[in-house]
C-alpha cells in the first residue's frame, strides 16, 4: 500500500484531479442546461414528452459506444469525453426537474397566480424552492453516473482514474486496478454525500427551528 503510494502517489493525485475535472464540468454543464430546460418543459406540456423521450433514447446508447462515437466528431482528449458525459448527465436532471416542478401542488400555483405573482415570480419564489429536493436528487444521481462513467473516458484519451484501471487490466496488475477503482468509488461516495448535504440545505424549511 505504502509502496504503491510512494511510486504512484503523485500521478494518482493528478489523475484524480483530471477525473474530478472531467466529471465536474460535464455535470455542471448538464445542470445548467437540464434544469432550465426541465422548467421550460413544464410550460409546454406537449413538447415535454418529445424532449424527454429523446433524452431517454440518448441514455440507452452504451457508454463506451457514445464515447467512441465522439472521436470522429471531436477527436480525442478531454473535450469529447466531457461532451459525452454531459449528454449522459442530462436525463436524470431533466426528468427530475420536470417531475419536481409538475408535482408542486397546483393549489399553490393557483394561489401564487391569483395573488398577483408573474409567471417568473411563481417559478422563482414558489415552484423551484418546493421542487428543489427532487431536482437535487436528480443532480445527485447524475453525479454518481458521471463519476463512474468518467473512468471509461480514459479509452478516448481523456485521462482520469480510468488510466490506472485500464493499465492494470492490460498489464494484469491488480494493484493498479485497485489503485484506480478504489479512488473512483471513494470519489463517487464523497460527492454523493456532499450533494446530499446540499439537498438537505435546499429543502425548504416547513417547521420552526
Amino acid at each position: 500500500m505504502m509502496h504503491f503510494l510512494s511510486v504512484y502517489g503523485l500521478s494518482l493525485l493528478g489523475k484524480t484531479w483530471q477525473h474530478i475535472y472531467i466529471s465536474g464540468i460535464s455535470l455542471g454543464l448538464g445542470t445548467i442546461v437540464a434544469v432550465p430546460l426541465g422548467i421550460a418543459l413544464t410550460r409546454t406540456k406537449r413538447t415535454a414528452s418529445i424532449v424527454i423521450s429523446i433524452a431517454s433514447m440518448l441514455q440507452t446508447i452504451p457508454a463506451l459506444a457514445l464515447l467512441a462515437f465522439m472521436i470522429p466528431l471531436f477527436g480525442i482528449g478531454a473535450k469529447p469525453a466531457i461532451i459525452a458525459l454531459f449528454i449522459y448527465s442530462l436525463l436524470p436532471i431533466l426528468r427530475n426537474t420536470y417531475i419536481g416542478m409538475n408535482d408542486v401542488d397546483p393549489t399553490l400555483k393557483d394561489a401564487a397566480k391569483g395573488m398577483g405573482m408573474t409567471g417568473w415570480q411563481s417559478i422563482i419564489k414558489v415552484e423551484v424552492p418546493l421542487a428543489a429536493p427532487v431536482i437535487m436528487s436528480g443532480i445527485r444521481l447524475s453525479a454518481t453516473y458521471v463519476i463512474a462513467w468518467a473512468a471509461l473516458a480514459s479509452y478516448i484519451g481523456a485521462g482520469g482514474l480510468g488510466d490506472f484501471i485500464f493499465n492494470g487490466l492490460n498489464l494484469y496488475r491488480s494493484d493498479l486496478i485497485l489503485g484506480g477503482s478504489i479512488p473512483v468509488i471513494i470519489l463517487a461516495l464523497l460527492v454523493d454525500w456532499v450533494l446530499g448535504k446540499v439537498e438537505t440545505a435546499l429543502t425548504p424549511q416547513t417547521t420552526e427551528g
Partner: peptide
C-alpha cells in the same frame, strides 16, 4: 392582469398557504 390580481384578495378552498 398581474396588477389587477394584486388589488383583489383571493381566498381558495384548499387555503394555499406557501408551505416554505
Amino acid at each position: 392582469p398581474v396588477k389587477l390580481r394584486r388589488k383583489i384578495g383571493y381566498v381558495i378552498q384548499n387555503i394555499g398557504l406557501m408551505p416554505h
